[in-house]
Amino acid sequence: MSLTIFDLPVEMINEIVEELDTFSRFHLQKVSKTFRNIVDRLKPSFKTLDFYINTDNSINLIFDKFSVVTYRKEGNSCSLVYKNHKKSIVGVDHIEIALGDLARALKNPKLQLERIGLFSATEFSNFLKKCLNSQIYVKKLVLKTHKIDEIPRILTIFQPGTLEYIEFRNEPKTRKNLLKIVNLEQMKRARNLKFLELGVKIRVSNGNRFKIYKKEFDVEDIVRLRDFLLTTAHFKSCLLTARQFNLPQIETILRSDKCLTFTINRTQLIIEKV
């Protein structure tokens, strides 16, 4: 009877698999359930992950900023390029293959990521939620999606309390959209929030107040921040610091809402709920 790799001591098999890079482990997981269980028992070899669906519809799955897997549609096939290697899979959708690899990377029960970036105009949150057995441990999330309804679904994938930093590369612009996300536990317990289109970073100094530093706030900025404060049950006040405020315009905006009080001088504005 011929021997197989599984006749080796478990410790030796683990040492062999530990030497494989992340993408090679992916391929090994697809071979059999036994190999999948072996890989899942090991600590993942990456600490950051980025997932891009690009404007040309190609997809990049990036581990630790340098290890890049590219997926493309070529006729009725999916091409995978990793380092100098290229593989074609006939009769499959490249987005489905890429999402499957993304889900496989996130399913490892020992996964603890420092950062994950998700950049896509395609809905994929429902796919991931079906694939994942539990919420993901991640400290930093960077998110860009043109489908605003995706944001609350994506946030629920992550463990509340582990997300210390959440950055939105596109900002919900209405009270309705803000309301969908600001009361999620993941948002309430994050220590830092950043809205890139607003151009500011929101620092949460305690459970009730957030602080924002920016060179200049225009009228639209103040309206968005007012709406953000009004739609969240978590934050009670905010402190804005700038080089200079346009006092008459800001007073007009904030006095129109009886649910808020404010104190303002040339460089600081404090807005509080009544």
Score class of each variant (00 low, 15 high):
residue 83 K to M: 02
residue 257 D to W: 05
residue 161 G to M: 04
residue 147 K to M: 04
residue 160 P to C: 05
residue 82 Y to T: 01
residue 228 F to R: 07
residue 88 S to P: 00
residue 145 T to L: 13
residue 110 K to A: 02
residue 226 R to V: 10
residue 54 N to C: 13
residue 265 N to S: 12
residue 238 C to Y: 00
residue 223 V to M: 06
residue 101 D to H: 00
residue 114 E to R: 00
residue 191 R to Q: 13
residue 189 R to F: 07
residue 250 I to A: 01
residue 29 Q to V: 04
residue 77 S to Q: 14
residue 170 N to G: 01
residue 187 M to K: 05
residue 96 E to S: 08
residue 218 D to Q: 09
residue 246 N to A: 04
residue 7 D to G: 05
residue 199 G to R: 09
residue 25 R to A: 12
residue 227 D to H: 04
residue 219 V to A: 13
residue 55 T to G: 02
residue 29 Q to E: 15
residue 26 F to R: 03
residue 133 N to H: 02
residue 130 K to F: 03
residue 113 L to E: 02
residue 200 V to H: 02
residue 81 V to M: 13
residue 53 I to F: 06
residue 241 T to V: 15
residue 196 L to G: 00
residue 63 F to P: 00
residue 248 P to H: 03
residue 152 P to A: 06
residue 265 N to Y: 06
residue 31 V to F: 08
residue 254 L to F: 11
residue 94 H to C: 10
residue 121 A to E: 15
residue 221 D to E: 01
residue 95 I to N: 09
residue 232 T to R: 01
residue 198 L to K: 07
residue 21 D to S: 02
residue 97 I to T: 10
residue 103 A to V: 04
residue 237 S to A: 06
residue 10 V to M: 14
residue 34 T to A: 11
residue 210 F to P: 12
residue 139 K to Y: 07
residue 74 E to A: 07
residue 129 K to Y: 05
residue 101 D to N: 02
residue 129 K to V: 09
residue 119 F to P: 00
residue 225 L to S: 08
residue 182 V to H: 04
residue 44 P to Q: 12
residue 141 L to P: 00
residue 28 L to T: 12
residue 146 H to K: 10
residue 121 A to Q: 12
residue 203 R to Y: 14
residue 152 P to W: 10
residue 157 I to N: 05
residue 88 S to A: 01
residue 89 I to L: 09
residue 158 F to Q: 01
residue 22 T to R: 10
residue 6 F to T: 07
residue 121 A to C: 13
residue 94 H to V: 05
residue 167 E to K: 08
residue 207 G to H: 03
residue 48 T to H: 02
residue 11 E to K: 02
residue 219 V to L: 06
residue 31 V to N: 08
residue 24 S to N: 14
residue 44 P to N: 10
residue 97 I to V: 15
residue 11 E to V: 05
residue 182 V to R: 08
residue 204 V to K: 06
residue 216 E to Q: 03
residue 67 S to Q: 15
residue 197 E to V: 04
residue 105 A to H: 02
residue 40 D to Y: 13
residue 145 T to D: 08
residue 147 K to W: 05
residue 33 K to W: 10
residue 123 E to C: 14
residue 37 N to V: 11
